[in-house]
Amino acid sequence: MFRAIQTLFGVTIVGFLLLPIVAILPLAFTSSVFLTYPIEDYSLRWFTELATADAWRLSIMNSLIIGLGATLLSTVLGTLAALGMRSEVLPLASLLRTVFLLPMVVPAVVLGVGMQMLFVNFGLASTYPGVIVAHAVLCVPFVIVSVSASLQGIDRAVEKAASSLGASPVTVFHRVTFPLALPGIISGAVFAFATSLDEVVITLFVAGPNQRTLARQMFSSIRENISPTVVAAALLLIIGTLCLAGLAAALRWRQERNALRAAP
């Protein structure tokens, strides 16, 4: 009895979360210009529109450029920060960690306004580097969390063993620490890319018309005219994000399995 209620409850919640998405996605394949059911005829015309209409094509390119840039920047910075906070000699490491994780909790609007004002002073407003930096700020916490977790799984004695066997600190890093942290770094990068991909609010503040990203383009086209192109774009985003999330989960799983086995 209790089990049945549990199952029912679970199914209801999942339905509640997924149904709106599932309800709208088939409309990406409609041939009509209206977002209405029933779908009379299926076609890929809205995907063609995505690929050919300048505004959409440009926004997809922008999303990729900015996403990759922000991923690269935040992965490098986040990894370095996680490595730094691992050191015992660093005072206030836990305070620093809190500061680094702040962008996760500060409202995006506040960050957006702040960055816009700041970027104007540096000539970064409405530039690619500006948007990339802004996104990276949001992505860094994800990288830090993920890399820290995988660093925590590394037995210090393994690094000590390497140095006693003749490896200089640099060699210890690239032969031992880095390979062992790599799954965490990659999954951090995946999270970073996904975060950048669907970020809208900060983009509204710091990006100019030339840096319009896919998410931003969807946002504005919803306000102008609701066409099935938006749904097609949404489908692309969802599939992309799902693939990335799957990749991250797979890496995490592998890492956990290794950690489990490595324990004596």
Partner: peptide
């Protein structure tokens, strides 16, 4: 520094490199 002392250390929990094979561990 430790890497210039030429001392072979065996740790209590072995501290093998988990991402390397037995042969790679010994070759290190």
């Amino acid at each position: 520094p430790p890497h210039r002392r030429e001392m072979g250390v065996v740790f209590q929990n072995y501290a093998l490199f988990p991402h390397m094979t037995v042969a790679e561990n010994v070759a290190f």
